[in-house]
């Protein structure tokens, strides 16, 4: 798709689309991962005007460190912070942690955990089938949804091989304050009935120098957020060379054989590097995830 689709124009007015993304890119360049990685990348920074370079966001999940927060006796914190931070409507898990056997037909009943955000595919089946261009590739590589254009046909949901799309079947429950805001395509707020939503990689936070909620929330530092363009990744604590991280750990992409070319990589494992629980029995507490919007609305009413 050349340039940005018209989708963004109404929601981002009066700022021009191009200007906005240039600004985002500049802001990101100035404050985000590049800033943190400053000393490691001096040559690149002087060579190219950072403002002219677009991010190519990727996420890396180190499954060796992920125990689904079972050892901590809390629900998976990535999902929980995503819910809280993105005002995810009740019942939706834009980032869902799946529990799975280590291998099909494995003799042991040990399990691993698979946190699944939107894979932000480069050959995205959802984008391909959208009849109105409501879901599209943003210049920085993420797949976004313009809920002010979506007609709710749900073919993107049928097309997504990762079950990563969610529909507002009824009026989505969100805090009243969120409902009152002007629609923003980057944060998908407020949520509209009859439209599709999903993980958006929190690029608005990245542009402001932050990290996605899941990355920030992970108590095991299992998430890395990075930029292929500048070849940097951070888990909020360490900063590493992204390509090296991927290569040395033989990172893979989920369902690579489908040809969707996701922007989410995994480093294989089953939580072996996560500290073991000692004080309490470890249990996967996905059922205890919360969407506290009704309570908030009731309390403020």
């Amino acid at each position: 798709m050349p340039g940005l689709p018209k989708a963004l124009a109404p929601s981002l007015a009066p700022m021009g689309r191009r200007t906005l993304f240039q600004q985002m890119a500049r802001a990101a360049a100035a404050t985000a991962v590049v800033g943190a990685a400053g000393p490691a990348q001096p040559a690149a920074a002087t060579e190219v005007d950072p403002g002219s370079r677009l991010r190519r966001w990727v996420m890396v999940v180190d499954l060796r460190r992920c125990d689904g927060c079972a050892g901590l006796g809390v629900p998976p914190q990535c999902s929980q912070y995503c819910n809280w931070g993105r005002f995810v409507p009740e019942g939706q898990q834009w980032l869902e942690v799946y529990q799975r056997g280590l291998a099909p037909d494995a003799p042991s009943d040990a399990v691993g955990y698979l946190p699944a955000p939107c894979m932000q595919c480069q050959n995205a089946p959802c984008v391909n089938v959208c009849p109105v261009g409501a879901t599209f590739h943003a210049p920085e590589g993420t797949v976004l949804i313009d809920q002010s254009r979506c007609i709710g046909c749900r073919l993107c949901m049928a097309a997504c091989p990762y079950d990563r799309r969610f529909f507002n079947w009824g009026e989505p429950v969100q805090p009243a304050q969120v409902k009152e805001t002007t629609y923003n395509v980057l944060t998908q707020t407020p949520a509209f009935r009859g439209t599709v939503m999903k993980c958006d990689f929190c690029t608005d936070r990245a542009a402001a120098g932050g990290l996605p909620y899941c990355v920030e929330a992970c108590p095991r530092e299992a998430y890395w957020f990075g930029d292929l363009e500048t070849d940097v990744a951070t888990n909020g604590k360490d900063v590493v060379k992204l390509s090296k991280l991927l290569e040395e750990n033989e990172a893979f992409r989920y369902k690579e054989e489908l040809g969707t070319r996701p922007r989410v990589y995994y480093i294989n494992g089953h939580g072996e590097e996560a500290p073991r629980a000692t004080a309490h029995e470890s249990a996967f507490l996905k059922d205890r995830l919360e969407w506290p919007w009704r309570e908030i609305n009731e309390a403020s009413a």
């Binding site: 089938v129 009849p131 979506c150 007609i151 046909c153 749900r154 073919l155 529909f167």
Partner: peptide
């Protein structure tokens, strides 16, 4: 079956030939 039948004209205004719909 549409979630937003009120926006059905988007098919004409923003229609993409890439989509089976």
């Amino acid at each position: 079956d549409l979630g937003r039948p009120d926006r059905i004209l988007n098919l004409l205004q923003y229609g993409r030939w890439n989509s089976p719909i």
